[in-house]
Design a protein around this nucleic acid. Sequence first.
DNA 1: AGCACGCCGACT
DNA 2: GTCGGCGTGCTC
Length: 807
Amino acid sequence: MIVSVIVDVESKQINRVFDYLVPEHFKQTVRPGMRIIVPFGPRKVQGFVIHTKHESDVDPGRLKPFDDIVDVKPALTSELLALAEWLTDHTLCLQVTALKSMLPAAMRAAYDKRISLADDASRTNLDSALLPFFKRTGDVMWDEVKKTEPGLLKIVQKEVKNGLLTIEPVVKSRETKKRVTVIEPLLPQDQLLEKADETDARAPKQALLLRYLSKITAPAALTRLLEETGISRATVKAAVKNGWADQRQVEEYRDPYEGREFKSTEPLPLMNQQKEALDSICRSLDENEHRTYLLHGITGSGKTEVYLQAIDRALKQGKEAIVLVPEISLTPQMVHRFKERFGSDVAVLHSALSKGEKYDEWRKIRDREVTVAVGARSAIFAPFENLGMIIIDEEHETSYKQEEEPRYHARDVAVERGRTYSCPVVLGSATPSLESFARAKKGVYTLLTMGSRVNNVKLPGVRIVDMREELRNGNRSMFSTDLLDAMNDRLEKKEQMVLFLNRRGYSTFIMCRDCGYVAECPHCDISLTYHRSNQTCQCHYCGYHVTRPNRCPDCESEHIRFFGSGTQRVEEELKKVLPEARVIRMDVDTTRRKGSHEKLLTAFEKGDGDILLGTQMIAKGLDFPNITLVGVLTADTMLHIPDFRSSEKTFQLLTQVSGRAGRHKKPGEVIVQSYTPDHFSIQLVKNHDYLSFFGREMVYRRQSDYPPYFFMALINISSEDLTKVVTVSGKIGEFLRKSLAETTVVHGPAASAVPRIKDRYRYQCMVKYKTEPKLAHTLKEILKTYQTEMTRSDLAITIDTNPYMLM
DNA sequence: AGCACGCCGACT
DNA sequence: GTCGGCGTGCTC
């Protein structure tokens, strides 16, 4: 018996299957989708079994048996193995990269070396630098040595040559399972009580323990037992020794929601528009028909309730469901709604969980202990085998696109899986991506529209304030008179408000007023942001930071000024103009710690704050009844980034934040401050007019050959050597033009929008096409041509067949 | 990737 | 004579 294996070596040359013999004792257990440990050249690596067979094309003498099996159950189902192949083809990534991306991070292998003394006598002759590590008997792991003294590898290798040490490569598993000690009575209840009566006089603690044991029906956690009875570990030990009880370790799933109560909810009554949407979706479900629905429902129209009831129907048919939400930790409210409706049937996979917690949630899916997976992008690979429903909430969100390899879009994967399982895929949004809406209009997707809010709550009134006008009237502050008045009004009425600004830190750039010097990152072509809390200037691209200069590094002038405002600056300013207001600031800097995000939101919900000030992360999913005012401080920052989607992003963001106001009984108001108030993506927010926005934006996309009219592919070339980047990208551009059809447009090569990041120069070529059968082949050809140069030098070529980040 | 093999310059 | 530089090639 032979297995074909994709080994965990990320290199173009190794991107194919290798065959291994199956050792006799594994013949019954090994199956496709399992991870195994294989010898690969001189080392050991992890590999994925792709299929089993009885003959190999490889010379039988060269076949080696594999070492071990990692998984008890296959990590990947046969469907996911096929999906990995699809991912590889569509994103042009390595097969092993696709396979690994489907597993939780805790299941990715780590490698180490075990160093042992050749024999006991070797110790005396060992290089003195290594002695501290070999004082005790037993082996030493290289990772341990590296931690204290990374330079010692040379000496270790020398001693290997001298025959004093041996090195054995090992594959470490990062999977840690949480274990708890449990106690279980070994005697029936009546005997326990009998024994308790006997021991009462001599050993009261034993008696207490025996009575406790007589009451339990399932094994009890030791820690809890000790806590509740107040007896000591020694007492328990004695009882175990007496043969009254058994103590053992059991595996436990870490429950990130432990101790939290979710009251269960019943389906809510639906409005007509919701019913119609639900009926269409359920029809596909009942008929086992794959169909992609675009659920276009304005903010507050009750999309979530439609998802919940559609899922419920799928579960009742014995099927499973996947729900994707953008960066789920950011929308705890959404998680709660699923937990409340489906209780312990839900596994949650979000970025704020620890690796171990994610692994446990993932195992619940694999072991079929749950039937619903709610999570961010990678949850689309949930290893279900009878999928009945896939839902992508806020489908326009760009976080569904992975910006590392494999560069996939969860929406595409969802449609592919929906096709395999013949099940409906529901894309929901108040502001669909242009791609999806265009597809819905063409009939590729089925459009479902929900145009009014639940209970007919009115959409908030939106006012657009011209900040140039404010300036002309002598208001140089960051708050317009309108916004300030409105804020004062809400403070008086004890109502809450949300202030939105998509820039963290304190200021956007630092400039010397005397000589015009602007502080820039020495490793990236980008200006530094001032962070007031720790008095540093930071680069948001590479993390470089320096203490703030008091004098201009160029001309020694003291007139260093900070321009533009970030959330920290606004917070400070708010303290000045509204000293009595309680402000809760929410951005990457205040939510870095685990759970802090939710803590801040709960505080705001409880009314511990009047103003919630934040970046992007407060734009989605917030649903608090007391919010009656939303202020957008600078609507145009998004508009000026060099990206053809900038108008779309601006409109989506403004509409989303607007939706945070007046979702319940109290009417809401939105004030948008802008320096370009006449731009259509800002004007059309006023009437929440998605359709007009769609129409206007499509005209621009058609004129400029952008998606959805054209497809794109982006080739990025980078190196520390600028000359190399220029020559290589030049050749690539030439090759693209020569190889592709005449109707295809090739832009560049040109320097990227951020021409240097982390000391690497970056150039790019852009391909825009309608149909291009030769594209995949041409791009693969490019990678093949530069394959050796990429391994031998620092040259890097990355290809994105559906780019969202054009920087 | 990571490791061995192999062929040329500067040291005990 | 040997140590070590990194070009080349291979991994079932």
